[in-house]
């Protein structure tokens, strides 16, 4: 049973369907979920201790940032908990998958997916001081700096991350002005494409200044759901980054 969207993602990929007692309601409905298809039709919960008690699952997946009161209560009630983390590198994502697969009794499935992840940057040179700089820009100017999985992936693809150049933390914000003053070679837009403009945060992606800039730069769309949970969706993110890198090479970038 999972009480967190990221845990849902991993569970769906690593467990056999009959092992899954319940997922969060987000898995099948939230625009942030990358696993709509897999989650369809499975039983859901709303992340409360009551639901856990009612179901009496063998294992409860929580997230590092789950409500501590909830986690403590479940511990006191004697449930077996497993804490999912948001991985900070490709390696930690792979390791987490292997570990969870082992707990779930499907170690081969874990090894297989982890192996794919570890191979991901294959065919690319790691980034050097001359590599082109790419800026990740999401709703509200959210970006991701050193110590994040996407940053790791960017580096391995032979690109430098704008956010880490600016000494921004793993989760940070780029003011539009900074972006315009130090224009990167390429953009990675991490908003959900189909939803743009419906919130203020996403309106920042519609700002004329950004559109004007994006019009002149190679741009990849990699919504956060492809990389924020550390599931195998990273493969797709890696694919898109590699395309971007290829495009930049074709344009003569070092």
């Amino acid at each position: 049973m999972s009480l967190n969207l990221c845990a849902d993602v991993l569970l769906l990929h690593l467990a056999r369907p009959e092992q899954i007692a319940s997922l969060t309601f987000l898995a099948a409905t939230s625009p942030l979920s990358p696993v709509h298809d897999l989650a369809a039709g499975l039983p859901i919960n709303h992340g409360s201790a009551e639901e856990v008690i009612a179901l009496q699952p063998d294992l409860v997946l929580v997230h590092r940032y789950s409500n501590t009161h909830l986690v403590n209560a479940l511990e006191d009630l004697g449930f077996r908990l497993w804490e999912v983390e948001s991985p900070d590198s490709l390696e930690s994502a792979a390791a987490q998958m292997e570990a969870l697969a082992l707990v779930l009794g499907n170690p081969e499935r874990g090894k297989q997916l982890a192996g794919q992840l570890r191979q991901l940057p294959a065919g690319s040179e790691p980034a050097s001081n001359t590599s082109p700089v790419v800026a990740v820009y999401g709703p509200n100017g959210m970006t991701t700096g050193a110590g994040s999985l996407l940053h790791d992936l960017i580096q391995r693809t032979g690109l430098r991350n704008f956010a880490s150049q600016q000494q921004l933390p793993a989760t940070g914000r780029i003011p539009l002005e900074t972006l315009l003053m130090h224009p990167p070679r390429a953009l990675v837009l991490s908003g959900e494409k189909q939803q743009q403009g419906s919130t203020l945060a996403e309106q920042t992606l519609q700002h004329p200044a950004l559109r004007q800039m994006a019009g002149t730069l190679p741009t990849a769309h990699i919504p956060g759901r492809y990389w924020s949970c550390g599931g195998p969706e990273i493969l797709e993110a890696g694919q898109r980054l590699r395309q971007l890198r290829t495009q930049l090479t074709a344009e003569g970038a070092p």
């Binding site: 002005e177 315009l180 003053m181 700002h207 004329p208 200044a209």
Partner: peptide, 10 residues
């Protein structure tokens, strides 16, 4: 150009 963009669009 980007300085102009900052001035006029932001």
């Amino acid at each position: 150009a980007n300085a102009q963009l900052i001035l006029w669009e932001l």
